[in-house]
Amino acid sequence: MKRLIDLILGLLVLLVLALPMLLVALAVRLTSPGPVLYWSNRVGKNNSIFSMPKFRSMQTGTPAVATHLLANPENYLSPIGSFLRKSSLDELPQLWSILKGDMGFVGPRPALFNQHDLVALRTAQGVHTLVPGLTGWAQIHGRDELPIPAKVALDAYYLQHRSLGLDLRILALTFFKVLRRDGITH
């Protein structure tokens, strides 16, 4: 049932956001050299690896690590990178991953392939059995500000309490947090 909802909602969102996504793609192309999309290897359900697209907000050649691990992440941002991240517009291409089935709208955020500490903690808690999401319980409780153990504890809570009602609550809270740009550190 959740997959069907993700598929229908994904198609509807894609129809509504197709033009804004084209405008963002054009802005990325015109403001910095390199591809419009950045594809990163992420950890999916049962720790399988998949490629997840985002609008490129960093300059080409930026190391493939979590942003908080960069010494001065702001030095790597493209001219519109900060805006894309703070507005969460860089996340829109993930609709592809939702339509493909690698992700859903709600679930734990997919870890980078090299975030071994996060993957190990999630596996120990059983969180790895979930389809990762565009947003999740941890996202609405701190996003970039959460240390990894706290993030995993929130993901484990979601695993134990997931329901359509909780998913709807997470989606609504995400909408308001994105509008207010809460929990974004870069």
Rank of each mutant, 00 (worst) to 15 (best):
L69D: 02
G126L: 05
K100H: 13
V65Y: 01
L164A: 14
S87L: 09
I80F: 05
L130S: 03
R56H: 10
D6P: 04
K2R: 13
I49S: 00
H68M: 11
R3I: 13
N41R: 09
V65Q: 00
N72T: 15
F83G: 09
L15V: 15
L112P: 03
Y158C: 02
Q139K: 07
N114S: 04
T135Q: 03
D167G: 04
Y38A: 12
L84H: 05
R3Y: 08
Y157H: 12
Q160W: 00
L19I: 15
L130Q: 07
N41P: 11
H186G: 15
L12C: 13
L92V: 08
R29L: 14
D167S: 04
S88N: 10
L168R: 01
L89A: 06
Y158F: 07
A111P: 08
V24K: 05
P79Y: 09
P108K: 01
T123H: 03
H116T: 13
P35L: 10
L99F: 04
L134I: 11
T185N: 11
T31N: 12
T67P: 06
P93K: 00
N72H: 12
L84F: 06
V119W: 01
Y157M: 11
P73V: 03
P149W: 03
A120H: 12
A153K: 12
F113Y: 12
W96I: 15
A25F: 08
I8P: 04
G136W: 02
K2A: 15
A66M: 05
L30M: 11
H186E: 14
R143G: 01
M103G: 08
L17K: 06
Q115K: 06
K54P: 10
V65F: 01
L14T: 15
I148F: 02
N72Q: 12
H141K: 03
L168E: 10
L11C: 13
I8C: 13
F55K: 11
L11Q: 01
S51D: 07
Q59P: 06
R162T: 12
F176V: 14
L9K: 05
V43S: 13
V43F: 09
N46P: 08
S78N: 10
T135H: 03
L121Y: 02
A64F: 10
M21N: 02
L26V: 14
D167Q: 06
I148N: 01
L159R: 12
R42S: 08
L130K: 00
N47R: 11
L30C: 14
G107Y: 03
Q59D: 09
M103P: 11
L70M: 04
R181D: 05
L154Y: 02
V16W: 03
S78W: 05
Q94L: 07
L23C: 13
F105H: 04
L164Q: 06
G10D: 05
A156Y: 00
D117Q: 12
A66P: 01
S51C: 10
I5S: 12
V106I: 12
P132C: 00
L23W: 03
